[in-house]
Design a protein around this nucleic acid. Sequence first.
DNA 1: GGTATATGACTGCTGGGTAAGTTACCACGC
DNA 2: GCGTGGTAACTTACCCAGCAGTCATATACC
Lengths: 204, 204
Amino acid sequence: MARPNAGTKGVPRLDRETQILDIASEQFGTYGFAATSVATVADLAGISKPLIYNYFGSKDGLFEACLDRGGALVADEIERIARGDAVGIQRGMATLGGMFALLDGRRHLWRLFFDPSAPTTGPIADSVTVYADRIGKLAEEGVAELMGLAGNDDLLDISAMTSVWLGIVDSLMNWWVEHPNESAEQMMQRCLRLLTAIVGEGEK
Amino acid sequence: MARPNAGTKGVPRLDRETQILDIASEQFGTYGFAATSVATVADLAGISKPLIYNYFGSKDGLFEACLDRGGALVADEIERIARGDAVGIQRGMATLGGMFALLDGRRHLWRLFFDPSAPTTGPIADSVTVYADRIGKLAEEGVAELMGLAGNDDLLDISAMTSVWLGIVDSLMNWWVEHPNESAEQMMQRCLRLLTAIVGEGEK
DNA sequence: GGTATATGACTGCTGGGTAAGTTACCACGC
DNA sequence: GCGTGGTAACTTACCCAGCAGTCATATACC
């Protein structure tokens, strides 16, 4: 006796994994890898720590699983938009819109790939690199297009501008997290207004 | 006997404190609060951990001291520029130029105020808030000016745009850290080119 | 009885923080 | 010039909390 709950919940592994990944993604995305403890995730899920180790092997494994699930989602969507025919600033806006729509309800996901407290070596770093590179490549491609239209082909300029662009997306995502009442659609409209304030009415 | 180094270095407290703050700021700025250990800072300074606790009381105290020294520097400079007569995008560019000039040689300082791994409650959070607010206020003021010129007075738009602006500065600082050979002057020229690529030649 | 779903109670390590003592140096009286 | 006591600078060796990770065991169901 003495362990009245052991084994009695009967939740199928896949369901449980999904639930754990949801909670872990939110915690990692909100507080960062270093500041998130496995015990906290277990508590929030209403289960014990060893079950997480059973299913994901380690804290690193758990984080990797979050990355893989979230990364595929985000990178696929950005790739889909990149295959569209929008160019220059329009492509940027289309990407933003896609992200807002995709990440509505899981806004913290974005931050997984830009977590400075995550390990910088080992499998986690590799996994981060895979998705950050996929996203970064697409961003760089779009930026290069934009800069090319303006007659600038300097590689360092493109690199810096890519960094700025990712920083912009990042800020918007963070701002969105802090303003939970904003819908994806509202965010998109807001971004269009911000763009207008900078470049003027001309460019759509 | 047996402690051949105890007390023999004779470095005045103020000198030692400055040295410790230099090293700690770089570590905190580079790896974040959570990932930086006091022992590492002590090692890099060539002294023992207790001396740091002697002078700064705690890890939090050390971080706070870094914040206070760096925050005053950065906030003062931004304030100085804000008192100038540049307006709108020009003011933004002037601020960027000031930051590049000021932070040349200590580029990591900027990141102290935007460290997601720093405690979110207690004296550290308060201190961060003081400087982040000072910087944020000035940024918001400049952004409100810019948006006003474009006929947009929406408070949430201004808030979001301020977040984007700070994100842009942040990205540029991070990019700069990753490209150590770039001089402050080169960075400034680069930013002007990036601006041109977005808004066109019109606005200087 | 075999397997999937679970848990309480442990271990070991890392890192913040501390107690107590050591060395150098200066000021002062003689 | 020379003991002597006070103080600033500094260290070794330790404590302890929190957290990643593990082991043995328990329940439920086919």
